[in-house]
Design a protein around this nucleic acid. Sequence first.
DNA 1: GTGAAAGCGCTAACAC
DNA 2: GTGTTAGCGCTTTCAC
Lengths: 340, 340
Amino acid sequence: MQDVARRAGVSPMTVSNVVNGHPHVRPATRQRVLEAIAALDYHVNTTARSLRQGRTGVIGLAVPNLDHPYFGLLARLLVERAAAEGYDVVVEQTGARREGELGAITRSRLRSYDGVVLHASELANADAELLRGEYPIVVMGERAYDEPVDHVLMGNEEGARLATRHLIERGCRRIAIIGGRLGSPDDIDVSTLRTRGYLRALDEAGIARDDRLVRVAVLGFEGGRSGVHALLDEVGPVDGIVGATDQVAVGVLRGLRERAVSVPDEVRVVGFDDIPVAAFTVPSLTTIEPDHDGMADAVVRLLLERISGERRADDYREIVSGVWLVERESTAGVVRIALA
Amino acid sequence: MQDVARRAGVSPMTVSNVVNGHPHVRPATRQRVLEAIAALDYHVNTTARSLRQGRTGVIGLAVPNLDHPYFGLLARLLVERAAAEGYDVVVEQTGARREGELGAITRSRLRSYDGVVLHASELANADAELLRGEYPIVVMGERAYDEPVDHVLMGNEEGARLATRHLIERGCRRIAIIGGRLGSPDDIDVSTLRTRGYLRALDEAGIARDDRLVRVAVLGFEGGRSGVHALLDEVGPVDGIVGATDQVAVGVLRGLRERAVSVPDEVRVVGFDDIPVAAFTVPSLTTIEPDHDGMADAVVRLLLERISGERRADDYREIVSGVWLVERESTAGVVRIALA
DNA sequence: GTGAAAGCGCTAACAC
DNA sequence: GTGTTAGCGCTTTCAC
């Protein structure tokens, strides 16, 4: 900047004013400065600017794993929202390990952002106090905390209840959940929360629960595929399956096809998340669609309120996103597509 | 840091030495400093550190769109590789627009990283000179440049050739490419490059080309679905289809099912990229698998060589990743799965 | 083993 | 309109 100033015959301050678009610079001066900038290929050093200004204009997003359609979508939505507010978003991966998530809020570099959105999946209740304090943090994800923190979460239990009730309305009476988990009341992971909604729907319909139908599985394609094989081998036929996630449900569709079980004729299947491919599977997948946009809006709003300090330090918010059912072929009343 | 130093009864310099794990600090002193750090909940200001050191320990990754399985995978692999070398990775989205990609290398903040990996998809040959210069940049993606830049790219043409040849070996003679493009020799986008490989395979097999079988489509699920409908409506039956990407191919499988066309009995389908869901579709998708790991290795290696300055400034490298065919059900010689 | 001085590049506040 | 001063928080250098 010194060099630019010298070449343009002005002070560094004037260069700064030009770079930042401040109004009170004479056009002729501005012109000379711009020429010097171009001639020297000058770029402002944002590190120095951040140090001076005490803010970076960056918010961090820490997610378990970018290699997952849900987090990819989330990242895109948050980047768009943040850009509209003049912030850049920087994405970090926690690897879905507790240390990674703790690291994200502890590690020094993330501290250099103006705020952080942390999608937690393994933090325990006991860790929640770390999330409080002066540093602006909004927590997303499947966990709910007793400790007050700014938190945006999905309607996990409600969504699973909707999904299961939909199967019941379609006539299913023997319904399994793959990727579910019979956790303790303290457990707040996505498998346990969604299983609660499943159990509640059964209960409301007066259907007796059978814990053998709650199948633990890794929440991915292969977990769904092998999970449905294990279910059929060990427990026998069912007429409805809830996939704890869409990835599990896609694996379930695949596994059922390997067993020559027809969907939706013999078994109806519903997923959760509405990942993009869900509309294009064969058969297409009925699923629970969370209000992704609403969540992204809420997250950015909460975080910016914290950064600006316009909300009292002890005024924490918890926002639960809406969920709704998207009906597709996998739970159709009649077979809608021609079969080969 | 001043506060910590005062509380520990030492100078800021000693605090710095402790924080950075420098050896020549007496254990007792170190202990006092660590206690003061804990008591005051001190965190180093990485912005100031970066300003002083002239390096940030961060490399930027600019991709068109995180909401895409390929880029999610790429981001994960690069983050892992970079972490092993002591670098953090920060992900930016360019929105697959030329301005976004130019912005990624022009914008000041990205300049504050030690280097950038830019996955270009819309930069033209004319823009390539921007990628040269002192700032460490490695370009990935489907484009090839005449200008010398460090560049890691996929074997697009070779992969499409393999895919098409595989269909021919399976007996297909009327083969379409969906998401293809008959570009000019100067065009270096993914659709055009892959179409070249397709045309070459046809040529090598002595099959006459029919340009109506090269179908332009948006490279996504819906592009594949509607593209195959349009193909069948406008050109009539085919016995083989190359999807320019796996997403297109998955849409094609869906579209064919909507037309009650059986895969692989009536039409064989092959994709490109080996996205995770490709092994779980019905039928599972034969595809071209790029050497993702090899690409990630090469990118990080090239970039670190640039950052460290160990390679001469005018010594640019271009690395083309290997590709291979992954055979699955969509091109099977016989129908391997039970049909509903 | 520890500390003092200096400066990385920028901009807020204030002078002119 | 433009310039001067000062300092953001840290670490390199060198002295002790």
